[in-house]
Design a protein around this nucleic acid. Sequence first.
RNA 1: AUAGUAGGUCGGUCUAUCGCUCGCUUUCAGCGAGAGGAAAGUCCGGGCAACACAGAGCGACGCAUCGGUUAACGGCCGACAGGCAGCAAUGUUUGGUCACUGGAACAGCGACGAAUGGCACCCGCAAGGGUGAUGAAACGGCUACACUGCGUGUUGCAAUCUCAUGUAAACCCGCGCUUGAGGGUGGCUCGCCCGAGCGGGAGGGUAGAGAGCGUUAGAAUGGCACAGUAAUGCGACCAUCCAGAUAAAUGAUAGACACCUUGACCACCAAAAGUGGCAAAAAGGCACAGAACCCGGCUUACAGACCUACUAUUUUU
Length: 112
Amino acid sequence: MCGQLRVKTLFANGKRLTAWPLRVTYLPLAGGETQVLVRAPKALFKRAVHRNRLKRLMREAWRLHQHELVVPMQVAFNYMDRTMQSYQVVERAIVKSIRKLNENNDSQSVDS
RNA sequence: AUAGUAGGUCGGUCUAUCGCUCGCUUUCAGCGAGAGGAAAGUCCGGGCAACACAGAGCGACGCAUCGGUUAACGGCCGACAGGCAGCAAUGUUUGGUCACUGGAACAGCGACGAAUGGCACCCGCAAGGGUGAUGAAACGGCUACACUGCGUGUUGCAAUCUCAUGUAAACCCGCGCUUGAGGGUGGCUCGCCCGAGCGGGAGGGUAGAGAGCGUUAGAAUGGCACAGUAAUGCGACCAUCCAGAUAAAUGAUAGACACCUUGACCACCAAAAGUGGCAAAAAGGCACAGAACCCGGCUUACAGACCUACUAUUUUU
């Protein structure tokens, strides 16, 4: 996912959920392809190496589990812990957040 | 053997599965390439680009023993002198001129040997004088400025160029159109040049792509000679063409090996401590750190391993 405008609208209008150590901001799409964004803030990690590492872990976990997401949406994974976590922890968080995204979407469709 | 000094090298390897970026090809696939010694800090110096040409004077800034080295440097190499630290190997620090002008400091004297002050003794009513011993501290300067010599045009790849998209060539105010606003030249002046628009307000629009951009043939990289004490040169010989992302590729998982720490146990010893040997199982660890136009330096960070030279002490021959 890229483009200043799209990112801005996602963070302005998107909903949030938490799956430690990630905070997920998402916005369901009517159609099209799912767009993803990963973030490791400079405020939390001073060194570029650490930020790169975390973004790679998040991307890798997403790559292996992206097919589990049912409905297309815009998703932003935001790393928010101050310590470096292992791949296992990140993977668990990604899986959990995908499950939550699916649940939320189901309940929404039921309501409407 | 122990302790230390200086310089240098390396800084994980392999396999399987699933991926990422770039290139090529016979393109639903295959093959090849894919982070560092500091890629970092952005502190110096260049290349490169733009400013029409890149001139002169003044100023400003930087550097300052001597020689060498280089594309260049405030870097590097070698040498000299003084201070400081160390038993030593060595490390560290300082190094133009003060003749003239100004400032601070400064009585005068002084290796032909030390003024003054303090001390002791003697003379004198006193002021003071004489003799003697002890003896901290000193080199011919310091700082700023000035002078002398050398160097520097400015801005930086968000430079710069091209294409595409879109709007308002509209509105208001001020100045100007050769008797010339404004600009190039951002420290100033002169000189040179461009010149019909320029500055401000409110408002409207765009913010995508490509080149620059990858050691596509050079200050190129890696060997090997040669010259030199060395930095470095020579390119004489051989080999090679080597990351190129842009919400920013170079990764994830599993296993094996290597390395480091702890270490059952064994030997010496009466025992403990200590020293030496072996190093299974197990546990833990495996640094600093991620290219962004490209090079040469400097500085800082760094687990651990290895190599070379030298110094001191002890023992043995």
